[in-house]
């Protein structure tokens, strides 16, 4: 028996919104420690890795590990039936071919349940090595979203260049060029407004805008985003979920021909 109850059900709705652009289907791996998911987009350029720790749920029971393969478009249809203030419970029997979502209003006067068919998915699991990144940038997630949106008007790719002084995002296209520079700025009133750079050595990497824009669907999950970069390895874009876990995206760089 698997059962996970989340009073803050809106969080689950936001998590799904943050991945359904990139993934049509994925397997939610449920274990005693929590729920995790790892999947690449269909072109194998980006990867989503998320973790929701069991202690972040209000009630969590997982007698044995279960893999819940889901069509995320269908899951999103069901999640749209939950109000933002609903309590959400996910339930599945061991070896079941369906999953049940229960939505309760805070006053418990309305209780809805939706049963969805599960899928058997061939899941490729990639081993992601621990990496000491040359540059780690922490910045407001809304700012990152804005920059990705703005520069995707200019070109298909963004060059992210990071030095001790700051981080620069650049795009070039038929109409011309655009650059956005952010200086390191830790002395702000609110922690979530800070731009903090930890640099071992400068890096400059090129990434496709359309994936970066998809990653920014996670913006409502966290006030800050962390970009981890080293030369010639995938970028990591991480949104930390308070007391719960994380949503991470990996993106392969573009290289000079």
């Amino acid at each position: 028996m698997f059962e996970a109850r989340l009073v803050q059900g809106a969080l689950l709705k936001k998590v799904l919104e943050s991945i359904k652009d990139l993934l049509n289907e994925a397997t939610w791996e449920c274990a005693a420690t929590g729920i995790s998911l790892q999947a690449m987009d269909s072109s194998h350029v980006s990867l989503v890795a998320l973790n929701l720790r069991s202690d972040g749920f209000d009630k969590y029971r997982c007698d044995r590990n279960v893999s819940l393969g889901m069509n995320l478009t269908n899951m999103a249809k069901i999640m749209k039936c939950a109000s933002n203030d609903d309590v959400i419970t996910i339930k599945a029997q061991d070896d079941a071919d369906t999953v049940t979502f229960v939505f309760e209003t805070p006053n418990q006067e309305k209780i809805s349940d939706y049963e969805m068919k599960l899928m058997n998915l061939d899941t490729e699991h990639l081993g992601i090595p621990d990496t000491d990144y040359s540059c780690i940038v922490k910045m407001p997630s809304v700012e990152f979203q804005r920059i990705c949106r703005d520069l995707s008007q200019i070109g298909d790719s963004v060059v992210i260049s990071c030095t001790k002084e700051g981080v620069k995002f650049s795009a070039a296209g038929d109409l011309g060029t655009g650059n956005v520079k952010l200086a390191q700025n830790a002395n702000v009133d609110k922690e979530e407004e800070a731009v903090v750079i930890e640099m071992q050595e400068p890096v400059s990497l090129t990434f496709a805008c359309r994936y970066l824009n998809s990653f920014t669907k996670a913006t409502p999950l966290a006030p800050q985003v962390q970009l981890s970069m080293s030369s010639d390895v995938p970028l990591v874009v991480e949104y930390k979920l308070e007391d719960m876990g994380y949503v991470r995206y990996y993106l392969a760089p573009k290289i000079e021909d």
């Binding site: 194998h44 350029v45 699991h125 081993g127 992601i128 790719s157 995938p234 990996y250």
Partner: peptide
């Protein structure tokens, strides 16, 4: 110009 590489180039299948 640049070309896109894929993730399995970096991460091994487990």
């Amino acid at each position: 110009s640049t070309s896109q590489i894929t993730l399995p180039v970096f991460f091994a299948n487990q």
